[in-house]
């Protein structure tokens, strides 16, 4: 009995807070944008009712000199404290992610006292706030359930890079390799509530030329290539937000875009292929594919993908981490200057 009481006491200690659960606001999505005047805009999407039902979602936004300033303004303008434990998705606009270092932004978010560490970080074309506002859960579903199901589906189709908040912060802090962030955009045609005009079957020509965006270049619809729009990502009947590929990170910023097919290849390579590097006599990157599986006959596509990533300077396939294993000390690794050698490295896929 004493042990049981002690256990109950210990469990109760973790929840000691003077704020009742029902008197907190639990946002499901968070957006980060940079305004024209250089200030940051933070947006939150939270359920209208405190009981968490799918009655509707309010979007709140505020601007400030820093993201934390904007959050403070936002918190001051609402009657209840914010609790980030239910956040599923953090959207960052492409422009912000390509112009500003991601580490301070994401670390600030991760260190919010109640932040959910496994919330996904995604890049939004154009305004993250607009993309967040446009997303609608299907058939009266809760937004959190809708997003959970969506992530599960993307994961099953191997088109969801590992870009949780904690992973991003860790990889950015480590700096030996890069990663991919899922990319989403509003399909303007679907937003106009004309679903009958849209192809009902996801998929399409994904093998054409794809677009890479220069660092810091602001996004506009005119740049949205057809092969990205016709991506293989799951699409729901009423949701105008499409998951169209991924944004590659290099040196702590987003540096370019991969199509849905390229993202799928990258995720499959990371999941099932063996990666090796040879550092003596010039850097060589090797991908050894499994004898049979989903990557059969994809050697050419993978080689092209690696070349694209090399052109962007993004080591999203984590060759840097593998190359660092050939060095005994951090000083030797730094002296090797992998980042400078990576774009010219030879590649071999077999």
């Amino acid at each position: 009995m004493k042990r049981l009481l002690l256990l109950c006491l210990c469990l109760c200690l973790t929840g000691c807070s003077h704020t009742y659960l029902e008197r907190q606001i639990y946002p499901i999505c968070l957006s980060l944008d940079m305004l024209d005047d250089g200030r940051y805009q933070v947006g939150l999407q939270a359920p209208q009712s405190a009981n968490g039902g799918a009655t509707g979602y309010d979007v709140l936004s505020a601007a400030g000199e820093t993201p934390m300033d904007a959050l403070r303004v936002l918190a001051a303008s609402i009657p209840y404290p914010l609790n980030f434990s239910q956040i599923r998705l953090c959207l960052i606009s492409y422009e912000l992610a390509s112009n500003q270092p991601l580490l301070p932004l994401l670390r600030g978010l991760l260190e919010l006292p109640t932040m959910r560490p496994n919330a996904y970080v995604m890049t939004a074309m154009d305004s993250a706030l607009e993309v967040m506002t446009a997303q609608k859960p299907d058939l009266g579903m809760r937004l959190s359930t809708h997003l959970n199901l969506l992530f599960e589906r993307l994961r099953r189709e191997q088109t969801l890079p590992d870009s949780t908040l904690s992973t991003c912060v860790r990889e950015l802090g480590d700096g030996r390799s890069d990663f991919l962030l899922c990319l989403c955009a509003v399909n303007a045609r679907l937003q106009n509530d004309k679903p009958e005009q849209q192809p009902t079957q996801p998929g399409g020509d994904a093998g054409g030329a794809s677009a890479a965006f220069a660092v810091g270049e602001p996004w506009s619809d005119a740049l949205l290539p057809n092969d990205i729009l016709a991506g293989m990502m799951p699409r729901t009947s009423i949701n105008p937000v499409e998951y169209v590929g991924s944004a590659a990170v290099s040196n702590g910023r987003v540096c370019g875009v991969l199509t849905a097919r390229e993202t799928q290849l990258a995720v499959r390579v990371l999941n099932s292929a063996k990666l090796r590097t040879a550092v003596k006599g010039g850097l060589q990157l090797q991908v050894i594919l499994p004898r049979s599986g989903e990557l059969d006959g994809c050697e050419g596509e993978i080689t092209a993908l690696i070349r694209r990533l090399q052109a962007m300077g993004s080591d999203a396939l984590t060759f840097g981490r593998i190359a660092s294993m050939a060095f005994a000390t951090d000083a030797a690794w730094q002296a090797y200057d992998f980042r400078a050698l990576f774009p010219q490295a030879e590649t071999a896929v077999r």
Partner: peptide, 16 residues
């Protein structure tokens, strides 16, 4: 249940 990976221990001697 974090993504702990052995390759993060490299460079094995760290700062020497």
């Amino acid at each position: 249940r974090a993504s702990s990976r052995a390759d993060r221990l490299w460079p094995i001697l760290g700062q020497g």
